[in-house]
Nucleic acid binder design. Structure first.
Ligand code: MN
Ligand code: MN
Ligand code: ZN
Ligand code: ZN
Lengths: 155, 155
DNA sequence: GGCTTATTGACATTGAATAGCAATTTCTTT
DNA sequence: AAAGAAATTGCTATTCAATGTCAATAAGCC
């Protein structure tokens, strides 16, 4: 809630405020992890995040990542994207347009899209069920062009 | 593909054909599990399914359930619904209208709904990205009426 | 600086999901 | 109907993502 000066606060500022508000502490480990998450637009899982942090020479334990993720979700900085091969996958959402995912069942390729009709559906749901909608997750599963071609050739 | 006689084949008939087509075998254990899954419209996880099967006096191992689920998904009889508290949750889809889920973040209450606009979105995605869409999953997360009330009272 | 207490990293533990295997059972073939 | 090949079962052991424990450390407040 400390959005001074009209400028958009950075994810680090947001998170620092969040921590203070909760009586928690801002540490170099947390900063390093957040910087890494926001350094690309890629989706990530704990393992891939851990590896890319280590590759840059930082020495952070996996436990710290596991402990940080729920806090980042609470602070609305990241979101669960999908659960695949036994692991949860995430992406950072702060500073990016909300979007949904079109995924290839075969090769796991992902296209991102957004569609205003989903917001309309949400509004109708609020009226119809009396829920207060917080967010949504629309995953569309299909076959990408090249996987369709492969499937056609092998038949 | 053995839809003879105009009548809709039962889930057991569907699955029997599926197994034959794959060179697999139809067993009493598989039949028991499928009957249980299709005996209600409830969502289920492996544990709850196992318990309700045991409560009816059947003696089936959990391993058989874990092994059957991927087959039922392949045969389009069930689908993953959501991943929560470390477990995947499923529902049977054969014989029921497709629907999406509106879930309360607080109390996990679930409303089911369907909206034709999602199908329109799918069509647009096929054109735009060249994917062949197979299915979708739209989860809307929010606060149900009573959880909103509770939240308002405690502030 | 000094004090309180959250956080870290190392290690142990949990628990869903999977793998291995011998005893059965299904299902095709005579 | 009996036999044989191969899939399935139930058991156990194993994997591995995620969580818990705890002493040492470090952040944040005075
Ligand atoms: Mn994305
Ligand atoms: Mn449902
Ligand atoms: Zn593909
Ligand atoms: Zn609720």
């Amino acid at each position: 809630m400390t959005a001074r000066k009209g400028k958009n606060p950075s994810e680090l500022e947001i998170f620092r405020d969040f921590l203070k508000h909760q009586g928690m502490r801002y540490t170099p480990e947390r900063e390093t992890i957040i910087r890494e998450i926001f350094s690309t637009h890629e989706h990530f899982d704990v393992d891939s995040l851990y590896l890319s942090i280590r590759q840059k020479g930082h020495r952070i334990s996996k436990a710290s990542i596991y402990r940080l993720i729920p806090l980042l979700i609470q602070a609305n900085l990241i979101e669960e994207v999908f659960f695949e091969k036994g692991q949860m996958h995430y992406e950072h959402i702060y500073g990016h347009e909300h979007h949904c995912h079109l995924r290839c069942k075969q090769c796991s390729k992902i296209e991102e899209f957004s569609d205003h009709r989903v917001a309309q559906i949400e509004q109708d749901l609020e009226k119809r069920f009396g829920y207060k909608v917080l967010r949504h997750r629309l995953d569309v599963i299909g076959l990408c062009k090249s996987c369709q071609k492969k499937a056609a050739e092998s038949s």
